[in-house]
Design a protein around this nucleic acid. Sequence first.
DNA 1: AACCAGTATTGTAGCGCTACAATAACATGT
DNA 2: ACATGTTATTGTAGCGCTACAATACTGGTT
Lengths: 292, 292
Amino acid sequence: MTVLRVAAELGYVPNMSAGLLAAGTSRVIGAVLPSVRNSAFYNYTVGMRREATKRGFEVITMIAETPEEELSSVQTLLGLRVAGVALVAGPHAPELHHLMDRCGTPVVESWGGENAIGSGVGYNVGDASRDVTRHLIAQGRRRIGFVQISGGGGLRYAHRLPAFQQEMFRAGLADDLVLTIRASDGFGAGAQIINDLVAREPRLDAVLCPSDIVAAGAVFECNRRGLSVPKEIAIAGWGDYDIGRQLTPTLTTIAPFADEIGISAVSALLNASDRDQSPIQTRYALYIRESA
Amino acid sequence: MTVLRVAAELGYVPNMSAGLLAAGTSRVIGAVLPSVRNSAFYNYTVGMRREATKRGFEVITMIAETPEEELSSVQTLLGLRVAGVALVAGPHAPELHHLMDRCGTPVVESWGGENAIGSGVGYNVGDASRDVTRHLIAQGRRRIGFVQISGGGGLRYAHRLPAFQQEMFRAGLADDLVLTIRASDGFGAGAQIINDLVAREPRLDAVLCPSDIVAAGAVFECNRRGLSVPKEIAIAGWGDYDIGRQLTPTLTTIAPFADEIGISAVSALLNASDRDQSPIQTRYALYIRESA
DNA sequence: AACCAGTATTGTAGCGCTACAATAACATGT
DNA sequence: ACATGTTATTGTAGCGCTACAATACTGGTT
């Protein structure tokens, strides 16, 4: 036993490469993230780490902003012979599908569900979108604008718009007040969307934003214009970010329970033996606060 | 050559463990981050990836929220026999120093500088703090509150308070309006600090916040109280986060050029052969905007 | 004392590569 | 034709571990 003490003293760390090479399995799982600027992805990693630690695994993450970077990250991870790869839904390099099919390493794709690579984990974005829309309609809002995100992130939320339009149609309301912004716009988009939507519909009385960040930007712009939220206009966010709780008014939003996605992703990865390919649904909630 | 095509077709990825074991070196560098909830750390990883890619390396990151997690992350990375380890300044597990000393793997510690493990990379936090303080004093502010962060993150900013106090003393002003908040408080801290500081000094005319997030919270609280920013009270942030540009008023802040820290960290790691242990100073800037 | 099942110990092949030695093929000069 | 230098090809040891076979010890039976 004392040999271990001395070993530790000397800074010895077992060579995982060798161990892995000999044993053929490692206790490391790899996650590829498309940027980590928002707390949702952060919570996702927290969930992954919690579940992984519980089962004696470690999580290493690689950040990839483009499909090409994602592919090369996955190759690195596969080269390291990780026990599993956790992907996030989004546009993938075409080779990636092929690679994951043949490599034999378990994969999950989170935040998407639909025709995922490997098993899918995510919450029902369509239902969530329906919930917010119904809530706004029930409030008596009639001219509701919808803002969607283009580019990579947009893919994760493909079901939002159809669900919105379906609900609007069912209520006999116009569902064409739709605006598309670039994914990277951050807070700055908020001002833009209020300008554009008001220009198109002066009597605009609600906006459904793709994230709390955009929603916060929209609230700032409404303040500048002297438009009162929620009296004259309702603003709904998405993602339950910190800022939504602190803003005046606090933001009504969809909370995606991102940590549960992480937990389920790791579980799916490590139970990949039982070929239960049915997508895992995680929970979400509509938090009704002051802004809508 | 066609064999490579077939190999790729079959989803073959070279086993890095084997290659590493044989060659003794990998082209992967490992970074350990203490959470990635703010854009500063994100930009840091962007810089690291840019520089690493340029030199033909990959970056894998592990997130560790406690010194123990950090230690175990480093062990995993060392087990993987990465080419270098990039740490972020903060409280480390005592074993970590010892481990890094003996393991022979190059290390850098970023965001700190002072008595770093391995080579240090960071900007001069003291100078930055001095700059903001001088700016506030030059504006005619006299009763300036200073908010610091306790816990892990606080260590990265240890030089802020002394620099502030030095400048205040030099200007003949009271330097004891100091408040300490917990690192994790986010936006919520903003309200708290305005309450506490005003209670201690009703004629408070400026606050130096530890982050733009806290500063934004403070601005929100001032709005609620009907305190006009910057007319009655100046609010300075730190970190140049997105929100600071979008808030009304926009936030005066310190921009740390985090991507440069990342670039320098990777350079230091890969040039570790030349034992140039002198800390690397990266740039920063005081962005004077509306709030102060 | 001889036997056997059960347990602890030691020894060794081999994981998939890379580095480099050994060898083969070739060009050049006398 | 042969020696010599130069480049291309092939072969092989070994990186640090793990899995498992081989062997050495137990203690309880007959």
